[in-house]
Design a protein around this nucleic acid. Structure first.
Lengths: 202, 202
DNA sequence: TCAACTGTCTTGAACGATTAATCAAGTGGC
DNA sequence: GCCACTTGATTAATCGTTCAAGACAGTTGA
């Protein structure tokens, strides 16, 4: 199997779905960008939807390499890793003049009645992201109060990332992103100081 | 002007854009549902995009009557009004089997390069929603610590609503919505108890 | 009182463009 | 010769949009 052509298609589709969305990206768009002809594309993929499947699998399998590793390079403190990850999205949003938000979040809201396979891949992408944050929260140990539901808090942080990008992009104002992250920071501060007080009180 | 036909189109488009998204809704879909013919639609609207404008204007102008008033009927406490509003979205999500999220949030992420007019209408809808929450936070008076940025907190609450719906819908699991709202509730609890401690301390 | 006119809205066939997808004929390495 | 892959013209369907013709209500003028 000529993996090169297949991968070229997936990479181009990744970029195009991110920039324009799934429906607004035509097969012709993908063919033009890759210099591949339609017969080749349909040799590897039964249809457009299967290109999306491959894209979502690529995101799922590449989260460590393409998302977490770059964001966390040189950042050791687990708490700061959370904000470093959020800052990665912030940077992308600004660098693209508010065009590039979260590719998974975009697709999750664009596709209204996705096939189960697609929906589960979107969910898996969210789950992996949440798991990465949860690992940071676990690594913070007793800096967060012991009774804290770290999984729920990790889900909450994904929520904030998605909502903050949505608002910042719509208003074309990074202040919305920053203020949202600011409130999250205050929330984590409070959780930490509560844990600290608890330790000192004992 | 025969306002009846125009309004029929706007109402049908509202529903269809909400259920299927903007791009997946064809003019033919709107015509079929309204029993209006294409010539009539194009008599009132220069094009599909202007139907979207009318829909967004309808949301903007109807937020009080169609969103806030029903959610807040019988709820006087400003803090509980916040959660009553969130609960409205929760109910819709469940009643529609995870189909109906936030119509504005959906459009905000589906449309990648919206015309300025569309983008500003989306932003105006968000702003009105945030303003309504901010009024609740102001009505809470010194139950929240005086230094709190109530606007930022209101934006944060919109973020949580949007992110919580996105995740719950993708996972088809209301637990994601509930846990997100749970963390928000804990955050507000903490803000309230901090304000209380401050008052008692003085 | 009635006929003619005016402007608003309706009808529905038709248009060109774009869409995802097909397929028969190739190419080239093994 | 076999098989994986490529080429690119072609397809049927669907898209948003157009337009000429007509329906209808209200106004005008005699």
């Amino acid at each position: 199997m000529n993996a090169a052509t297949r991968q070229k298609i997936v990479m181009a589709a990744m970029e195009l779905f991110w920039a324009k969305g799934y429906q607004s990206t035509s097969i012709a768009d993908i063919l033009a960008r890759t210099q591949v002809h339609s017969g080749s594309l349909y040799h590897f993929f039964p249809g457009k939807q299967h290109v999306l499947v491959a894209v979502l699998e690529a995101y799922r399998d590449g989260i460590e390499q393409w998302l977490l590793a770059p964001a966390w390079a040189g950042v050791e403190d687990p708490r700061e890793r959370i904000f470093a990850l959020l800052n990665g999205y912030r940077t992308q949003l600004l660098a693209s003049d508010y065009a590039y938000g979260c590719p998974i979040g975009n697709l999750a809201l664009e596709l209204h009645e996705p096939d189960p396979e697609i929906r589960e891949l979107l969910a898996a992408n969210f789950s992996n992201w949440v798991a990465a944050i949860e690992r940071c929260l676990v690594a913070m140990g007793d800096r967060v109060a012991p009774g804290t539901d770290r999984r729920a808090l990790a889900e909450f942080i994904l929520t904030i990332m998605e909502g903050a990008i949505m608002q910042a992009r719509t208003h074309r104002d990074i202040g919305l992103f920053d203020r949202n992250v600011g409130v999250l920071r205050a929330h984590l501060d409070q959780l930490e100081s509560a844990a600290k007080a608890r330790v000192e009180g004992e």
